[in-house]
Write a protein that binds this DNA or RNA. Structure first.
Lengths: 134, 134
DNA sequence: GGCCCATTTGACAATGATTCTCATTACCGC
DNA sequence: GCGGTAATGAGAATCATTGTCAAATGGGCC
């Protein structure tokens, strides 16, 4: 629980490049798109490495991962606090939302059934105001 | 909006078979598993047809679809009541849970941001009592 | 600075779910 | 029963993702 318990790994050029690209957008992008962005920047990073790096970052909770309705994984750097997403089904606009109530509720439900070592995913899909009026 | 506006399609042996198998379980199953169940029953239905049929049913809102953490699509006949799942990460045991609190919360959050036409997915993952002690 | 060695990378093969293709077959209305 | 259309099946094709393994690289130590 100290600040020294990071499995970390080496700070390589490739990892830095991925981290930088993640700073360059605010919405969710697929691994392939991120790889494309890197290439466009002149940063040569193998696709497999992009996948590995994103996975590592996701494990470390440094990026959010979610699945599009087609099942493709999309990534975005995340804010330090745990939160959920309200996603526009039409244009993809995303709002981060927090829900202490939900956190409490999931814990209570899981306890009730004896489940431990919890995680949860909550995503809300809808149509955003812009798409509604458009 | 009448009962006659179903694009329907033909009631074939295969479609009936898929519909029947969907009645035989209460949790989510992948298209491949469903195909396996059909084969086990002696019902010969092509895999592609299973996919097509499930897709059709999903479009007609006659089955629920969700994605596992690995991105695989899983299907289940719609139960009349909306609920969520508490899934064992190790053995896959699933408990259906209801959460009026969550429903209310998601609606409130969405309203707050002006999103309409909502749906949401909440899944809780953990380790079940059996796997904890095993 | 240079060496040692585990970690990381990259190119490419492999996997696995899903979709497409297209010739064949099965429903439906007549 | 017949004809025509929609549905099916077998397998190829697609596409994201993961595995493989030899080559390259970064860090720590002298």
């Amino acid at each position: 629980m100290t600040s020294t318990d990071r499995p970390a790994g080496r700070p390589t050029r490739q990892r830095r490049a991925v981290a930088e690209v993640l700073e360059s957008f605010d919405d969710f992008r697929s691994a392939q798109e991120i790889h494309g962005l890197l290439t466009a920047r002149g940063q040569t990073v193998g696709l497999a490495t992009v996948y590995r790096t994103l996975q590592r970052l996701a494990d470390a909770d440094e990026v959010d991962v979610l699945r599009t309705e087609e099942g493709e994984a999309v990534y975005r750097r995340c804010s330090p606090t745990h939160h959920h997403h309200l996603v526009c089904r039409t244009c993809g606009a995303t709002v981060e939302v927090e829900g202490p109530a939900v956190e409490r509720w999931t814990r209570a439900i899981a306890d009730e059934h004896g489940y431990a070592d919890l995680s949860h995913h909550l995503e809300i899909f809808g149509t955003c105001p812009a798409c509604l009026s458009g």
